[in-house]
Simulated scan of single mutants.
Amino acid sequence: MVAVVELSEGPGTGAAYARAALGMLRRGGSTLPDVELVHRGVVVDREHLARYDRVCGLRLTDTLPATYPHILAFPLAMRLMSAGDFPLPMIGLVHVSNRITVRRAIDSGSRLDLTVRAVDLRAHPRGRQFDVVATASVDGEEVWRGVSTYLRKEASPSAAPPSTSSSAAPAGPTGGAVWRLPVRTGTDYAAVSGDRNPIHTSRVGAKLFGFPRQIAHGMWTKARSLAALEGRLPESYTVEVAFKQPILLPSTVRFTSVPTAAGWEFGVHSKRPHLTGQVR
């Protein structure tokens, strides 16, 4: 039976990062905690929403962007993944994909009930992965659902060796819109999202995890992509993305999109793909 933990106020992310640092040496377990965190009656801070919109290139409206409830639920996810009974250390997890379903437009004046669970710990060729499922409801009706898939890279004797091919990566698509991303892209998004992972905000922190410099947040890239499609999206839809090569900051990338029978396909590329996605 799922244990439901009701929170009377939203948890901060600072304490979660501190717990995550202490949990870096945690030994791997095989079972996710069967718990659901719930925070009811969440009210949107419209000034914060406006800052988020500006950072992500979104229009300033009274309707929540598809990615904004992810920001509201993120502290719950942080608390869940940094808890002592979580089987995998939070630091080092790789956000590999994200799927959001918007069931109807959400007015910024709505009071939201948020839930977060971790489910489906499973094997992956490079380690193990699991899903963090978040929902937002208004008056008992689910209006939004997000599924974030995280990968914990682990050595595996059965894993295929890395490719030694010397062939060059295929060129990215041409056309579309060129985005020039300054270094502050990481720190600006960290300030509005609460995701202050040092790989996004500090050159030194990024180097500690094998990056030559800071990288852009994947969820910023998704939000910025949806901003580029604003005015062409229906009231209800599902948008799913896969995070590919990280975007080093500063950087210049290209956004492309094509309509399909089901909706849209889009991507962010430079010499290599950084994000691929589809709207249905």
Rank of each mutant, 00 (worst) to 15 (best):
A50Q: 07
R51H: 12
R51F: 06
R51K: 14
Y52H: 02
Y52D: 01
Y52P: 01
Y52Q: 02
D53V: 05
D53E: 15
D53N: 15
V55T: 13
V55Q: 03
C56G: 01
C56P: 01
L58Y: 03
R59K: 09
L60K: 13
L64S: 02
L64M: 07
L64V: 04
P65I: 00
P65H: 03
P65N: 02
A66M: 07
A66Y: 00
A66C: 12
A66E: 03
A66N: 03
T67Q: 04
T67M: 05
T67Y: 00
Y68A: 03
P69V: 09
P69A: 11
P69D: 10
P69N: 11
L72H: 05
L72F: 08
A73C: 14
F74R: 04
F74G: 02
F74E: 02
P75Q: 11
A77C: 08
A77S: 10
A77M: 08
M78E: 05
M78C: 14
R79E: 13
L80F: 12
L80R: 05
L80M: 15
S82F: 08
A83W: 09
D85C: 00
D85L: 02
F86G: 05
F86H: 10
P87C: 00
P87L: 00
L88C: 08
L88M: 14
P89F: 01
M90S: 13
M90G: 10
M90E: 11
I91M: 12
G92V: 00
G92R: 03
L93C: 07
V94W: 07
V94C: 07
V94M: 13
H95P: 09
H95G: 08
V96Q: 07
V96N: 04
V96H: 06
S97Q: 13
S97E: 14
N98R: 09
R99F: 04
I100K: 03
V102N: 01
V102F: 03
V102T: 14
V102G: 02
R103S: 12
R104F: 11
R104N: 09
R104C: 14
R104I: 10
R104L: 08
R104Y: 11
A105G: 10
I106Q: 02
I106C: 06
S108Y: 06
S108N: 11
S108P: 06
S108F: 07
S108L: 08
S110A: 15
R111K: 14
L112Q: 04
L112A: 08
D113E: 12
D113H: 12
D113P: 09
T115A: 14
T115F: 11
T115C: 15
T115L: 12
T115R: 15
V116E: 06
